[in-house]
Design a binder for these strands. Structure first.
Lengths: 247, 247
DNA sequence: CGAGGAATTGAGAAACTTCAACCGTGGTGG
DNA sequence: CCACCACGGTTGAAGTTTCTCAATTCCTCG
């Protein structure tokens, strides 16, 4: 499989052969982590930047009473902690949801990129800004939509994001999480998630069985969830246009 | 009043006299905007970067049915659209909640800062990363906490943020918004916000009357809301430590 | 085949919404 | 100076959504 990170960044900016080489070398130094393991915990001040190359992970916080909120899924190509260069410590946890392959990028490499490859560096900032935009959309999702709409919206988002890194097909994709994880993502109880999934299934909008999402009619689901992918900023950024204008 | 932006950035990194001069010159070119006016709308691709110097504004999205979700308050010192250099278009609206003074920073100036003042540029990135961290905490807040806890948590956050830019006192601060705006922020109905405020008032945790928040015992309120300010990353960043080590 | 985790279902309770009426207050025009 | 208007805050009552608890059932894996 082509490195998901490269695939993702190329959606934003054209990469030079040098860039691609640099990025694909990272995957040699990738570490395997099993499911349900912490990658980074709140308070950590990691020295390296980590990227998920394979598998699913999640950002989360746990409250005193044990309740947990997930506020981002990390899919292949997503950075864990691009911000630690600026912020000194993690303010949340990242844990694997499935077995993952995670690459380490040393601080030194990041500094090199910052100094010698502005184009690539901008692509990295693009990643963190898209993460923030996604977070905003999730807040709207949880704040304003019903349980069923929320879930439908999340599925639409994951469908687009996974396609962008070459995972899943037009009508289905693998989502290797439990309904309980989904509940912690949506701010709902797992029982209610279950009933909402049933409702979505009966309306033939989407099914979620054996960790596979099947979407008979993506247009209808997106309409139902009022999903508009523009917040994912997958269209080429200004850097891309400039580069092409120069060519 | 000292420029709130300067005050805020100095909390993160030491500024040179040059930096301070540059930043305070911005306020000369500040624009006044009345209450309930858009500053930027979804789809805009502003050429300048804007900073709120006085007043309150909010980031929001509006859904088809007219319901609205606010996902950030902009208080003096906060940037509107630092990300437009990388992302081409706004994916949400920003509207004033009160009359505001807003400064424009031209793209050229931002580029200059990026090229000649790495320290200051890092401070700008720090702002956007703190915004993202705040968003994460809001998601936890709406996803996991009861109406009363949510509201209490928001008040704790605003208390800290406003103090950081020199607004409000240890026991009170001005919050010039209606309960309806608060409802759109918390993902609740305004009726329920009203009842929750009553409950908080009766427990003597916090009062909100005539647009003023009064907190008899901030420790008790923070305890109640399970508020921990570390996500605001107000402690000095690594840049600060390095600069002092050099001195 | 059995065991354990995950999914499903029922029932009753709690949180939150909606609708509608009413109150308080500050501002405006006569 | 007062009447009144408008807007935001407050309250009641009834409805809806979501939660909790608890009991089954279903699957997957060993």
């Amino acid at each position: 499989m082509v490195n998901a990170l490269i695939r993702k960044l190329e959606g934003f900016t054209p990469l030079s052969d040098n860039d691609r080489t640099l990025l694909s070398e990272l995957s040699n130094r990738a570490v395997s982590i099993s499911a349900d393991q912490p990658i980074i915990l709140q308070g950590d001040a990691p020295s390296d930047v980590r990227v998920v190359l394979e598998g699913f992970a999640a950002r989360s916080k746990t409250l005193r009473d044990g309740s947990q909120q997930i506020f981002a899924y990390l899919v292949p190509g997503d950075f864990c902690d691009l911000h630690v260069a600026v912020l000194s410590a993690m303010d949340h946890d990242i844990r694997t949801l499935t077995p993952c392959k995670v690459a380490n990028i040393s601080k030194k490499t990041v500094r090199e990129i910052a100094e010698t490859r502005p184009n690539l560096m901008q692509a990295l900032w693009w990643c963190t800004l898209v993460d923030a935009a996604t977070l905003r959309e999730w807040l709207v999702n949880i704040g304003q939509r019903s349980a069923e709409e929320r879930i439908a919206h999340l599925f639409c988002e994951l469908h687009v994001r996974l396609k962008a890194v070459g995972l899943g097909s037009s009508k289905s994709f693998e989502l290797p999480i439990t309904q309980d994880v989904l509940a912690k993502t949506m701010g709902l109880s797992s029982v209610h998630v279950n009933r909402s999934l049933k409702e979505l299934r009966e309306r033939e909008l989407v099914t979620f069985k054996s960790r596979v999402i099947k979407i008979p009619d993506i247009g209808r689901l997106e309409e139902y969830a009022e999903f508009d992918s523009s917040y994912l900023h997958l269209t080429r950024g200004p850097a891309y246009a400039e580069a092409h204008a120069a060519a």
